[in-house]
Design a protein around this nucleic acid. Structure first.
Lengths: 338, 338
DNA sequence: TTGAAAGCGTTACCAA
DNA sequence: TTGGTAACGCTTTCAA
């Protein structure tokens, strides 16, 4: 740990004032070329790095954005994070990345840390545990610009970037119907998860639109573990008149469904067809490969970042914007027509 | 954007000095219980958040660590990142996470940004492009504590947390030999990558130790794309006397190898057995599931963080430590004995 | 137990 | 074109 070189050191060595050094470094006008050259050279020689803390403090601006995501272990979040970071950098901001690991407590702590770090705005996708939104309301009370993506709160008025889960699920179910399925089940997430519920709605609408009746016994709620989906699928397929098509709320659970069907020696897609959501890389790697609904990850990340920055930099009151993006069904083996 | 509440605001409203408020907030001794109570209450009411920039500036300590990883899209890095963050938080530090996306340029920029953010130490895994280490040497010149994990530079004296790639590969190859393979190939990465080369060495040693001769034609160098591995594997298997076992340098490439073998209608593991490295979640999900060498991700993350913090907080000159961890071969279908 | 004031590294204003 | 100085929000002496 040695003393880090500051603007004062440069000033002293060159026998000029700190004000002048500061100007030279930022190449402001009104500075003698020679002075500037000398400053720049010495700065390079001493490997001077400006202290952003000091700058931020005087400017009361950090040019930093905060991100709160549940878990970077998910392809979905790590990819969006990458795009958010890229968009932020492009706009001259840096990004503070935090993970909640799906914990409500950590969500609160992370947000608090971001506040203390003086971020100028926050992009967030809520943890699974988050049922109470006081911490977000407080954020808004203090005027902190906020943008949600994916998992959001309906109670909070803020910019949001989402996909149309209802329509996506409608299309996924319709795809199975078009390919000949007569009896379609839905493997959902916990019944309090809005993304899951929206998808159930789309699924139901598709059935009704094609004169198939909705059978609640065919809608099963899993937790987030593939094992659970396997167990539930075994039960699901065990009844008489089992489904010949399954819409699964996520790729992770779809893997569990796949395991069950293989155990039962059911042929995919001949006997049972499957479609799921997220289009993670595994989809194209497992056998049979899984048809899955792809979200526009890059667009989500870019848009969220742009909306946030727009709000930060807007002089007038900013009108929250809700952007609903289209998804794309990627068809693979698991749902191929016979 | 409204004015954020500061220690001054609290002081003014309570008609006391900022010094007293500061003391109350940090509950230092020598403060009247009533004063303290009043301060804490008002702070809560106004949702006061300390400005870490200011604190860090006066203390010239940020209690922040910097992390530079190639790509959070890899399970390997996102998992280690999670453990690093956890270890950092536990020790009272926060973490600035940056990704290079395998770019040398971005590695330099990221490090510079971390410096400007006044991190007290840096944990890094080098980008693929990084061949020149001047930026790291500069880091050390200014006394910045540095810890490498996984991809490191042999030229730099610093703490490192790694696994024994040579031994891991020896064991992987031995496993194939034990299970009856007579002719074993190695699908490697680019020939300038040290991790890959260390694994080749282990593979060679295993063959020699078991009276099998090393045939350079059986060692093929792929890039990082599964497609390339597929193409090269097709060539590899096309010759007369093709291998009956393949050690693959990474799971990603193993997937490509799998595709080739399936195309050739070769039975796995009956006709060809496979072992790879990293033990990503896909390994257990593909069919056949892939035997793979698991790295102790949690230990790597924790250890790297602890070494770094130890160095930061050590009063005396810190002796760099190289820690070489053991791996564990997770056996699955792809290498099962007939 | 409390307050005044200096200082952390930088910027920005005013004066020279 | 340059310098002096107040200020950013906080901590830390030193004195009261």
């Amino acid at each position: 740990m040695r003393h880090q070189v500051t603007i004062k050191d440069l000033a002293k060595q060159l026998n000029i004032s700190v004000a002048t050094v500061s100007r030279a470094l930022r190449d402001l006008p009104d500075i003698h070329p020679d002075t500037k050259k000398a400053v720049l050279e010495l700065a390079a020689e001493l490997d001077y790095q400006p202290n952003v803390l000091a700058t931020s403090l005087v400017k009361s601006k950090t040019k930093t954005l905060g991100l709160v995501v549940p878990d970077l272990g998910y392809h979905f979040f790590s990819t969006i994070t990458k795009h958010i970071e890229e968009a932020a950098i492009k706009a001259g901001y840096s990004l503070l990345i935090t993970q909640t690991q799906e914990s409500y407590e950590r969500e609160i702590v992370n947000i608090q840390n971001l506040l203390r770090s003086q971020v100028e705005g926050i992009i967030i996708s809520l943890s699974r545990e988050t049922k109470n939104f006081d911490h977000l309301i407080r954020l808004q009370k203090r005027g902190m610009p906020l943008v949600f993506f994916d998992r959001n709160s309906e109670d909070i008025l803020a910019s949001k970037v989402m996909v149309d889960n209802e329509v996506s699920a409608y299309e996924a179910a319709k795809h199975l119907i078009d390919n000949g399925c007569k009896r379609i089940a839905f493997v959902a997430g916990p019944s309090n998860v809005s993304v899951s519920n929206q998808r159930i709605e789309g699924y139901k609408r598709a059935l009704r639109a094609h004169q198939m009746k909705v059978d609640d016994k065919l809608i099963i709620h899993s937790d987030y573990y593939a094992d659970t989906a396997t167990r539930l699928t075994l039960e699901l397929m065990g009844v008489k008149n089992p489904p010949d098509g399954i819409v699964v709320v996520s790729d992770r659970l779809a893997l569990g469904v796949l395991v069950a069907l293989k155990q039962l020696k059911l042929k995919i897609p001949e006997q049972v067809k499957i479609v799921s959501f997220n289009n993670e890389p595994i989809c194209s790697v497992v056998s049979p490969s899984i048809s899955s609904v792809a979200q526009p990850l890059e667009t989500i990340g870019k848009l969220a970042t742009e909306l946030l920055i727009e709000q930060i930099e807007s002089k007038t009151e900013f009108e929250p914007q809700i952007r609903v993006l289209k998804t794309e069904l990627v068809i693979r083996e698991s749902s191929k027509r016979d």
